[in-house]
Write a protein that binds this DNA or RNA. Structure first.
Length: 569
RNA sequence: GCCCCGAUAGUUCAAGGGAUAGAACUUCCGCCUCCUAAGCGGAUGAUGCAGGUUCGAGUCCUGCUCGGGGCACCA
């Protein structure tokens, strides 16, 4: 079933019949600020502009001229708004029918059918267990992946492995000294390597030497680098897997050390007079020749004096590699610290006729006391958070679900922990700094992932206890008696719109906010509208269907955010 | 110094240029003979400062202040 159509679209035709000058896109449906005013509000601003009329006058004119038939029970022009009271049972039946018919596809606009999307994200330096700041990238990238797949894009998720650099060389040397180095020991080893490089010149020199041999393709060194980066990557991926982040393709930076395509690119830049060799024999790009307007960030080094490539060189090659995959949408999720750098790359790529990926930036996560710093130890490790959260959640589950095995209880506790962290991070607009409050994130109360999960568990509980078979779709007379039901159903009906705007804006935070609003609307319904003890069998069935539809929408939304919806908790 | 983001209750976050700026946490007062109290109801409380555009600005423009990020051989 096609669900891109607005549930209120049947109201448009009568309006266009009365005002042929208008188009469907001029008619927008808002919720009225108060239900007493109407079930739905149509702002007059757009139509007024087209008809060259004053909005308050136009709303009155609408009341006179438009014949809504039996869809509408009352028309209230209020200033520049036309407020309508609707035939609620008819609209409610329609909404529930659509949701249940589409099931886990409800909300998708199928905008990506036949299209391919490539997304690159996370790319944590292989040196330690990820902290929640880094994990923000993984959560955003992973949820965007889910969103685009939901929209029927064929998505390939890439992870760029930083397996080059002096840091890896130093780490590799330390690794040689420690027998059976484990992932947990790596952060200490990394810190030690850096400390030693500062005081021990010999040690630092060896690091560079290793890097050079790596670039030259020395098999022995390549194996060393490979071992240490694999160890790190494996450990990091295990942690990321706990929050549900998955990757399809791993691209190693070392693959792009020498790349023939770059010769052509450099030649093109030379033609534009944008490349020069500086006094220290480095190969430098002068971005001012490509449109860069100010002095800072004007120069970009491609190669060192000894002919070894810089990270930017490798990234250019990597970008071309990704372009070659021919995706219709090419995204990369980057920290705000990469903004200038990504713009510089984009300038060079575009100046030479290449595409560049669409960059999505996220800001840093701050702590109450200041910034997160691996070196200063002021970090919240994702692992630590998950362990603490799961332990807390397990206490609650053990009380609530006594009949379950400890394994089942732990499983739910882990789902709660993941929900807590993913929701806390994803609900915030990516371009804003988030202040992470450990205590609040562990409380599971209020505007949290676990709150939403809890409301889902209540829906499951009701449907579990429902006596008999629920029909697949509502019957002809679908009774809707309370405002709470109507508000909830209206909320559910907007899901495809939310998805559409999230795809356009390449964001998922609005889905998180939406899920929270649905959960709240359901909780109000839960308190105002008894389901299993409603007055009539028809009402019981109708409300059970409302629960089922809500559960479906919420499950769909939570899945995009990477949260599970346990049946009990 | 220059460039890019941001600034909304005590705190953490919402709000497609539109009606009385929403939640949550905290504090205070209530609610488990009633489908899960990880819940619900009530009370208190906010658009950094100064201008401008607009019928209408938290939202757009300018300046300032504060916070985050960046500005050639780290990746």
């Amino acid at each position: 079933m096609e669900n891109t159509v607005n549930p209120f679209e049947s109201l448009i035709a009568p309006i266009l019949a009365a005002f042929p000058e208008l188009e469907a896109s001029d008619i927008v449906f808002n919720a009225a600020p108060k239900l007493e005013l109407g079930d739905v509000a149509i702002p007059m601003f757009l139509p007024a502009r087209k008809l060259k009329a004053a909005p308050p006058k136009l709303s009155a004119e609408f009341k006179e001229k438009v014949d809504f038939g039996d869809l509408v029970t009352e028309v209230n022009p209020t200033g520049p708004y036309l407020n309508l009271k609707l035939n609620r049972p008819a609209f409610s039946k329609d909404i529930v029918t659509r949701i249940l018919a589409d099931g886990d596809r409800f909300g998708s606009n199928h905008s990506g059918a036949g299209l391919r999307m490539l997304i690159e994200h996370t790319s944590i330096n292989p040196n330690a267990s990820p902290h929640v700041g880094r994990a923000r990238c993984a959560m955003i990238g992973d949820s965007l992946t889910r969103l685009f797949r939901f929209e029927d894009y064929e998505v390939d998720v890439h992870y760029y492995v930083n397996d080059m650099g002096r840091q890896i060389g130093l780490l590799a040397m330390i690794a040689e000294e420690i027998e059976d180095l484990t992932f947990d020991q790596i952060l200490d080893a990394y810190v030690e390597a850096n400390e030693r490089a500062k005081v021990d010149e010999d040690f630092a020199e060896k690091g560079y030497a290793l890097l050079s041999r790596m670039e030259e393709g020395d098999p022995e060194v390549q194996a060393m680098f490979r071992n240490i980066t694999d160890l790190c990557l494996k450990g990091q991926l295990a942690v990321l897997a706990r929050i549900g982040a998955q990757y399809d393709t791993f691209d190693r930076e070392s693959k792009y050390v020498k790349d023939a395509r770059l010769d052509a690119l450099v030649a093109q830049l030379k033609e534009k007079d944008a490349v020069f060799v500086d006094e220290k024999e480095r190969l430098v790009v002068d971005l001012s020749k490509l449109g860069h307007e100010y002095e800072e960030g004007r120069y970009f080094v491609l190669m060192r004096a000894n002919g070894s490539s810089m990270y930017g060189y490798r990234d250019l090659a990597y970008s071309m590699d990704k372009n070659a995959m021919g995706a219709d949408v090419n995204l990369m999720v980057l920290g705000e610290d990469h903004k200038l750098y990504a713009q510089q790359l984009k300038m060079m790529l575009e100046a030479t006729g290449h595409d560049s990926a669409e960059a999505i930036y996220y800001s840093y996560i701050l702590l109450k006391d200041g910034k997160m710093s691996t070196r200063q130890g002021t970090v919240v490790l994702l692992e630590d958070f998950l362990d603490q959260a799961a332990a807390l959640a397990q206490e609650r589950v053990a009380e609530q679900c006594k009949d379950m095995t400890p394994e089942e209880q732990l499983d739910i506790a882990n789902q709660v922990a993941v929900a807590a962290i993913r929701f806390a991070i994803l609900r915030v607009s990516p371009n804003k700094n988030v202040t992470f409050d450990m205590e609040a994130a562990l409380s599971f109360q209020g505007d949290t992932g676990p709150y939403i999960q809890y409301s889902c568990a209540r829906m499951h509980s009701i449907l579990r206890k429902y006596d008999g078979e629920l029909p697949a779709v509502p019957g002809d007379a679908f009774p809707v008696t309370e405002d709470a039901e109507w508000i909830l159903l209206n909320k559910l009906a907007t899901f495809p719109d939310i998805i559409n705007s999230c795809v356009e804006q390449r964001t998922v935070s609005a889905i998180a906010i939406y899920a929270l609003e649905v959960a709240r609307a359901f909780t109000t319904f839960y308190h105002d509208c008894p389901v299993l003890t409603a007055e009539t069998p028809e009402l019981i069935e109708a409300r059970a269907l409302v629960c089922k539809a809500t559960r479906q929408v919420l499950a769909n939304a939570l899945d995009l955010l990477g949260l599970d919806a346990p049946e009990r908790m």
